[in-house]
């Protein structure tokens, strides 16, 4: 060991983009090492979407009519399912303590984690949805609209969900409470998304829904990290 080593007076900490990238990278690496956590919600999504026609009957009209709604409900529930584990392991192994005393701003670290969550839960849903949409006899032009609404919607869901996950992280069995907290905020996303897809399917003007979802995503992106950071500080006391 270097005996002459002294504590440096002035050190420059890495910038916030380094912190953001590092947190995202770490969570993606963890997801890679535990693929089950990523595949579970995806499997749930696919199951709900394939079981539904079996229960209500395979008539073409009915499938076309209910397709957007079923896909969106399933996507919402699958995202809720994956949100539970967002902060739990960090809370249990003390990583959250390290985040709280990190020189990086907490909202930045939270945003990094949420970004990784979206990349491992929301984005796969977007890419799997066309396969399921085709089984609902959705025309290809509408599939594009649906993917866009799902992409924008799951961004908002991940961000809003992170607030709920942060509030319930210290509670045992906070699952039900998390869903209860998030549903009122998530409902408009689902309604807008499913509606836009239905409108597109009936050749109507659907762009309003897309803009509204985009606005919702931007609002969540700018506000949710701060709310989540504040919630984490309270939960970890």
């Amino acid at each position: 060991m270097n005996e002459n080593h002294t504590i440096e007076a002035q050190r420059e900490n890495p910038g916030i983009f380094s912190g953001l990238a590092a947190t995202t990278k770490r969570d993606l690496l963890l997801a890679w090492k535990r693929p089950g956590d990523v595949l579970n919600p995806l499997f749930f999504f696919a199951m709900v979407c394939t079981l539904f026609p079996l229960a209500v009957g395979p008539s073409a009209e009915q499938l076309e009519f209910s397709g957007p709604g079923v896909l969106w409900v399933a996507a919402l529930l699958a995202t809720l399912l994956s949100l539970n584990s967002l902060f739990i392991s960090d809370f249990e192994d003390g990583s959250l303590d390290q985040f709280l005393v990190s020189p990086q701003p907490l909202p930045v670290l939270v945003l990094g984690k949420t970004l990784a969550h979206w990349l491992t839960s929301g984005l796969p849903l977007v890419f799997v949805s066309p396969i399921l949409a085709i089984t609902y006899r959705m025309p290809l032009s509408v599939v594009g609209v649906m993917m866009l609404t799902l992409a924008l919607g799951t961004i908002s869901l991940s961000l809003l969900g992170s607030i709920g996950a942060a509030l319930t992280v210290g509670l045992h069995r906070g699952t039900a409470l998390l869903s209860l907290l998030i549903l009122p905020l998530a409902m408009p996303i689902m309604i807008l998304g499913a509606n836009a897809v239905s409108l597109a399917a009936s050749n109507d003007i659907y762009s309003t829904g897309i803009w509204a979802l985009g606005a919702y995503a931007i609002a969540s992106l700018s506000l949710a990290p701060y709310a989540t950071a504040a919630a984490l500080r309270i939960s970890n006391e």
Binding site: P14, S18, G19, A22, L30, K33, D93, L96, D97
Partner: peptide, 27 residues
């Protein structure tokens, strides 16, 4: 720097990966 009973290290990652993450946050 904070050291406590709950180490804040990830069991799924190696030593180098864990400390590498810390290095991206601090000088």
């Amino acid at each position: 720097v904070w050291l406590a009973h709950r180490t804040g290290l990830k069991g799924d990652l190696t030593l180098v990966e864990n400390l590498g993450f810390e290095r991206s946050l601090r000088a």
